[in-house]
Write a protein that binds this DNA or RNA. Structure first.
Lengths: 288, 288
DNA sequence: ACGACCGATACCCGTGCGGTATCGCCGCCC
DNA sequence: GGGCGGCGATACCGCACGGGTATCGGTCGT
């Protein structure tokens, strides 16, 4: 008779396999990434497809492509795997460690606010050690979801706050950073359209969620230090929140861009957090 | 040599096993629930503990109890398993089905608002079929998390909205429902303290998240129909949102309880929803 | 003290996962 | 156009691991 596997539960192993294939779009490379060989991987994906009763990938001998359902599963599987990893991590933390909170912040962002927050929180009664985790753009969300961090500072609209509880801390306008002496540097303000229209200074490309840089002109950039160095060299310009001005050197010039979207710094934490330390940190932050 | 299993990933099977044991606090019954025998279950839990490097359960020959870490894992594992189930369900939905939204509402709650919403949404351009899923108290959150429902009406503070995106729709005061002719029925209003203090009419016991009823006096109750029948019979009284008045018969009496917490009806959906139908439904709801 | 209860251990078996070898299909290039 | 190379699927095999049965060992109740 035909297998009764249709209602059997999905295992995380299968989800990990699928995510690898969906990201690589190549069974061989995915297998390599998973430290295994290609045949069992092919079989596992077939089994997953049979189990779900859904075609996840279009295979031609030359290329592999996600189906509609496949791209849904890719997104959902990442969330599910993050949740499993978080379960693991938070359980370990609950057992061994002495208390302590991990706060994730993008390197270089919100410096002033961060130092105020750390000082104010340290003065609170019952404050525990705060480990600040500096990370690249787009990372803090993932760190929160996987339980590597307990709380984070995010920046709307750049970061996506979906799935977290948040409190707004601070809103600021954006400015364009130019090399000193650039023709536009004397303007009282600029519009986003003008910034995008000028062609002598390209906008930088930040890494996406997958760690890869999007295609296009302009230098690849990983953090603000790199960015500002490129700008000082006259190789780029960028629109950034105005609070970054205190990281600029005197070979930079800034011009307000009033119609660029305002940036709101928020403190974010996983929605089911029961940690007193996180709650205290949030309360302290909102009172600054 | 000692196994190198410490960094191996956790499988959903292990999480399901742990949740069963943690809920039953009894290996034998948990094994029964999982349609297996006790010894492999014991081993699986031991393996999980070794893998995490954490003691999850205190076993004495007479009783099993959760450790601190164990109760963290119980909560996290439920969320992770829900996420896996959601991945499965949403993938299936994305493939086979024609479009359509599933809206979860507690049976009997927000009747008027619900029917207004359905009418208004049906009149929208691009509206798809809405399947209304009536369910018991506490269920809608789980339905949303597991992907059985796409959107839900919840009632703060009774329901927990943590982990969802929400929009407030309506806020109302609560009233106490008494049998007609009860001595307190003529009062212009009552305080929560007075309601709790009176002893001739017990408050009902609603089922908890696990489906079991808490201990205590008062009749067990599953929905509002049951409840109102019991009240009419003079066997209970209850504090409920005032919009339920249109479900009362003329053998009931109601008295406002101004100091009871106000109840807010919210529309809630999973934070990463990309469904146009859900977005339309939410927009329609907020415009009512 | 003995029996009942319950989780742990010992041991066995079958399934299923992963490995190697190979096939089949398609594009490309000389 | 035929041969070659790349890639996913298939065939087959071996072993590790998940699950079953039998039994042990400790603890509480009477």
């Amino acid at each position: 008779m035909v297998s009764a596997e249709y209602d059997e539960p999905v295992e995380t192993r299968e989800l990990r396999y699928f995510v690898a294939v969906a990201e690589e779009l190549h069974f061989g490379r995915a297998a390599q990434r998973l430290a295994m060989t290609q045949p069992p991987l092919s079989r596992a994906i077939q089994q997953l497809e049979r189990r779900l009763g859904v075609v996840l990938l279009h295979r031609t001998a030359r290329a592999v492509a996600l189906t509609e359902a496949g791209s849904v599963l890719l997104r959902e599987a990442r969330l599910a795997l993050d949740a499993v990893e978080a379960a693991e991590r938070r359980t370990r933390r609950a057992a061994g460690d002495r208390p302590g909170v991990v706060l994730a912040v993008k390197a270089g962002a919100s410096r002033e606010l961060l130092s105020e927050l750390l000082h104010a929180y340290a003065a609170e009664p019952g404050a525990v050690a705060v480990e600040v985790m500096l990370c690249g753009p787009g990372e803090p969300e993932s760190l929160l979801r996987t339980g590597r961090a307990d709380v984070a500072l995010l920046h709307r609209p750049y970061d996506t706050t979906a799935g977290f509880d948040t409190e707004d801390l601070h809103t600021e306008q954006q400015v364009v950073v130019l090399p000193k002496g650039h023709p536009l540097a004397d303007r009282a303000y600029l519009s986003s359209a003008e910034v995008n229209a000028q062609t002598d200074l390209p906008l930088p490309r930040w890494p996406g969620r997958d760690g890869g840089h999007p295609d296009g002109p302009g230098p690849q950039v990983r953090d603000h230090t790199q960015l500002f160095q490129l700008i000082a060299l006259g190789l780029a310009c960028a629109v950034v929140p105005e609070s970054l001005r205190d990281q600029l050197r005197d070979d930079h010039a800034i011009v307000p861009v009033p119609d660029a979207p305002a940036v709101t710094t928020v403190i974010a934490w996983p929605p089911h957090s029961r940690s007193k330390a996180v709650a205290d940190l949030v309360r302290t932050a909102t009172r600054l």
